[in-house]
Simulated assay, not measured.
Amino acid sequence: MAGSFSTWIRKLTRDDDEVDADRLSGEADASGAVRAQICCQGEVVKLQGRLRYVDLRPTDSLATLVAELYDGTEGVQLIWLGRRSIPGIEPGRTVKVRGRVAIRDGRKVIYNPDYDLLPAHA
């Protein structure tokens, strides 16, 4: 009984970010996606999560659209070269992506990933 009470108290005192991270991780697991936390450089992976930010980073030679996908375990940068915008790719949107993981400046990155926009939750 004491164990169930402490579990109940722990659930009540968790912050919203922890609850959201657990939900995102659970949805990614249920979809068959790999957790961002365990994917490694060179692997072709399928990830699912929410876009934390989307940013246009123009350079002299090439427009670059950068987004961060967060699956509840870790963020992965998604970089589309030569794109100024992509309809539906916006902060807060849930997406499933496929691509090869690279490491850039110590961060996990997928260049020009294939993606599926997922329906918003009610």
Results as ranks from 00 to 15, higher is better:
Glu68Pro: 03
Ile110Gln: 05
Ile110Trp: 03
Lys46His: 15
Ser85Pro: 03
Leu56Cys: 12
Ala33Cys: 14
Leu47Phe: 05
Ala122Lys: 01
Tyr70Met: 14
Val109Thr: 05
Val95Ile: 12
Ala67Ile: 06
Glu90Cys: 03
Gly3Arg: 14
Gly82His: 07
Glu68Tyr: 06
Ala67Trp: 07
Ser25Asn: 11
Leu51Gly: 08
Ala30Thr: 01
Val97Trp: 08
Thr94His: 08
Leu24Ile: 13
Asp16Tyr: 10
Glu74Thr: 00
Gly3Lys: 14
Glu68Asn: 09
Asp16Lys: 15
Leu65Val: 02
Ala122Trp: 02
Asp22Phe: 04
Gly72His: 02
Arg98His: 02
Val19Pro: 06
Pro113Gln: 05
Leu12Gln: 15
Ala67Gly: 10
Asp114His: 08
Ser85Asn: 05
Thr7Lys: 15
Gly106Phe: 03
Gly26Asp: 04
Asp17Tyr: 13
Leu12Val: 08
Leu47Asn: 01
Gln77Asp: 11
Thr13Leu: 02
Ala36Ile: 15
Gly106Leu: 08
Arg107Leu: 09
Ala36Cys: 15
Asp116Leu: 03
Leu24Glu: 04
Thr59Val: 01
Arg57His: 07
Gln41Val: 09
Val76Asn: 03
Tyr115Glu: 00
Val97Thr: 12
Val44Trp: 14
Pro119Tyr: 02
Gly72Thr: 00
Arg23Thr: 00
Arg10Phe: 06
Val95Met: 04
Leu65Tyr: 00
Pro87Glu: 14
Leu69Met: 06
Asn112Leu: 03
Ser25Trp: 11
Ser31Cys: 01
Ile89Lys: 13
Glu18Phe: 06
Ser31Asn: 04
Glu74Arg: 04
Arg10Ser: 07
Ile86Gly: 02
Ala21Phe: 14
Glu43Lys: 15
Pro91Met: 12
Glu90Arg: 12
Val66Asp: 13
Ala33Asn: 14
Trp8Lys: 10
Leu56Ile: 11
Pro87His: 13
Asp17Gly: 02
Tyr111Lys: 13
Val19Tyr: 08
Lys96Ile: 01
Asp71Ala: 11
Asp16Val: 11
Arg100Pro: 00
